[in-house]
Design a protein around this nucleic acid. Structure first.
Lengths: 405, 405
DNA sequence: CTACTTTGTTCAGATGCGGCACAAAGTGAG
DNA sequence: CTCACTTTGTGCCGCATCTGAACAAAGTAG
């Protein structure tokens, strides 16, 4: 009885409404067994069993009869639920200051295959995206996996619903480039199945951290990161990215964090953008940034290898204070229950977590029982994984419908 | 046929999942007819009809055979759906700087009855709330309406999940007073049916404006208001109040809006709280605030009657600029599709809408096709109506379940 | 080996909703 | 006034999805 491959399913169509939530639970690692799935979904064991069988039949998850972790030692051990590592994949691409990356990402945020990256970014979006999509198509051909769709992360705000890049600051793309349309067209032209999506890299990193990284379980997750120039932010509310009414939310770079600070192109002065990015750190430490390596890399190296240098130490404290002021402002407005920092901000947090916590607690209105937890991001390639999340989203929302075609 | 009171309902139990959304549509005036209800719910006419019949049987709405507005001139006219003005009510109370208000509020945000207010606020929350609840109980006895619950609006942030008042600034209540518990206890002691809720007044005003006022239809609604001292904010996302993870979101008073500004108790300087409230306006205009009338009243009078005075004019422009800077900062972070202003901010908007729009558009990062619409609030007693919304919420979420008891 | 606990499965219902056919109530053309 | 046309309201059937209860399975504790 309970033969594994025999598929003695009684009526073949059971559990539609709960399919999506169930898949999301397995996807985010919150349902290791059917027993947990039952509790998390708030349904009966009968329903959870039918739902799991249906997801298995769709090739998305596997039900392993080896006992799964979670329950107590008593009673019948529950079968292990896990993502099917031979299942479909999403094509993920990321464009950043130093090139692009392409990968295939399965459920659970697992990188199934990665293409060799590229070192420079041409000024023509169509050329970059064409190359990236072609690399992805080659990966798909090589792995012979079904593709559920494609996602792209770009270092720029993406306007909704147009899908244009509004401030591709550190890549030389034209302002207002229709990146979503270009990407979608290339994906279709390459014969890749499924829809194509485009989003801001920090937003997508936040989404990935929320589902698979340090943000798991957070209800209101704030992410702040700086990679090259300027500061990016993102907010995940109840599991969904908050991009605002036109995709421009969390442009946190122009919070005032230093009333005596340097002028910013926005018209103000002392903005987070010019007071807490890698260039600001190098300048504060009295270093001239060189053109050979990325600003983030230079700042990171300086922070790691010359932390004892008094000038570096002073610059670190100054940037922590500026960042803390910005975070405090965001805490007063958004009241998140967790903050995740990426890029150089992550390094600053590692360098002196006490100081950053103290500044945020001091300048946000209420300590909130010890202050908001501030954590470093934990995922490699979180923007890439987040881009894949975009492509997986329709499947998570309605597995049957999305995989029907 | 179609006899109005005969209730020839076939199976008596139809439409449960769609009941809540349907009631909310009628409640917010977005479903004037059954035809519109059908379209808005995305269900079939059969379902919409059953749902409407069920809501009518519950005594929440009325189906009037007179033709309702909305459809074209052709075809069979659709019956008018409206809130049953003899239906249940919610008890709403508001505490503000000059006393308290109590009212009964029906579906649709209609004030059914109002108790005479009170002129001063004792320093003991239990005494104030006891009096207010007693006044409400008297109203309920007089009207003999069923009560679905009670809601309270207070001029302070309310911590979640404790329900304590964190900054009852302009009423002399103790910081940390357990207002939610006190109110709930008084409501229960007075024999009033249904649960009791407590929220911040600006939050509740935003909720009311979103459902019945200038915010109707907005997806991401930002409200900013100043009544006495300090500035309050609120955000309604997809029809739900965003209060953050611990009820402290949208404490917008400490955005920096004037780098050369006066010091604030928060440790910064030039905060919105001290640069754009009624006291700031009076001071900027060179007036000494008197103790007899409320600061809001004094500022309002000055703005209305002496607008020609050069000092008043200068103060007005200064406050508009400060407010605009704060709004621009919020727009960069939240990207709302509508902004509503209340209290003195509403008067500032009326005084020179072009200037305010220009400042916000100039200092927020992207004009967004002409900038965010900024509107004055339109509801009388919006905090009071919002408090009632809290009490109505369980009914809107699950009419059958909430009215079953 | 025997209780006991917890998990998985089967089956019979309950229920909410879609689809369809038909009736009802208006408009406009002739 | 009549007839075609449009749109709305309702009865009925069926289907999909979930619950509940009974039973079987698989482990632990004694």
């Amino acid at each position: 009885m309970n033969g594994k491959g025999t598929t003695t399913r009684t009526r073949l169509e059971r559990g539609r409404g709960a399919l999506g939530p169930a898949l999301e639970l397995v996807h985010t690692g919150r349902a290791p067994t059917r027993a947990v799935l039952t509790a998390e979904l708030g349904v009966t064991r009968a329903t959870a069993g039918a739902v799991a069988a249906e997801l298995e039949a769709l090739g998305l998850i596997t039900v392993d009869s080896r006992p799964g972790a979670g329950a107590g030692s008593q009673g019948r051990p529950s079968h292990r639920l896990s993502v099917d590592d031979q299942g479909p994949v999403a094509l993920a691409a990321q464009v950043h200051a130093d090139g692009y990356r392409v990968a295939l990402v399965g459920l659970g945020g697992q990188l199934v295959a990665t293409a060799p990256g590229c070192g420079t970014v041409p000024a023509d979006p169509a050329q970059v995206l064409g190359e990236a999509v072609e690399a992805g198509a080659a990966l798909l051909r090589a792995t012979e996996r079904r593709c559920v769709g494609a996602g792209l992360a770009v270092p720029s705000a993406v306007a909704e619903p147009e899908g244009t890049a509004l401030n591709p600051l550190h890549i030389a793309w034209p302002v207002g480039a229709p990146v979503r349309d270009i990407f979608a067209e290339r994906v279709r032209a390459a014969g890749i199945e499924g829809p194509a999506f485009t989003g801001n890299d920090v937003n997508l990193a936040a989404l990935a951290e929320h589902r698979h990284g340090a943000g798991r379980g957070a209800q209101h997750l704030l992410c702040v990161a700086t990679g090259h120039r300027g500061v990016g932010g993102a907010l995940v509310l109840d599991g969904r990215l908050h991009t605002g009414s036109s995709g421009l939310a969390l442009e946190v770079g122009h919070l005032t964090v230093n009333p005596e600070g340097r002028p910013c192109h926005c018209g103000g002065k002392g903005c987070l953008d010019v007071e807490a990015d890698p260039l600001a750190f190098l300048t504060a430490a009295g270093r001239d940034p060189g053109p050979e390596v990325s600003l983030l890399q230079q700042a990171r190296d300086l922070l790691r290898t010359e932390a004892a240098d008094p000038a570096v130490r002073r610059a670190t404290e100054e940037l922590i204070d500026r960042l803390g002021l910005g975070l405090a402002g965001l805490v007063n407005i958004l009241n998140p229950d967790r903050i995740i920092l990426g890029g150089l901000h992550r390094e600053l947090l590692d360098a002196d977590p006490e100081r950053l916590h103290a500044v945020v607690a001091d300048r946000s209105l209420w300590g909130q029982g010890g202050g908001v937890p501030i954590l470093p991001c934990t995922l490699d390639h979180n923007s890439l994984v987040g881009a894949a999340e975009l492509a997986w989203q329709p499947v998570l929302d309605d597995p049957l419908g999305a995989l029907a075609r």
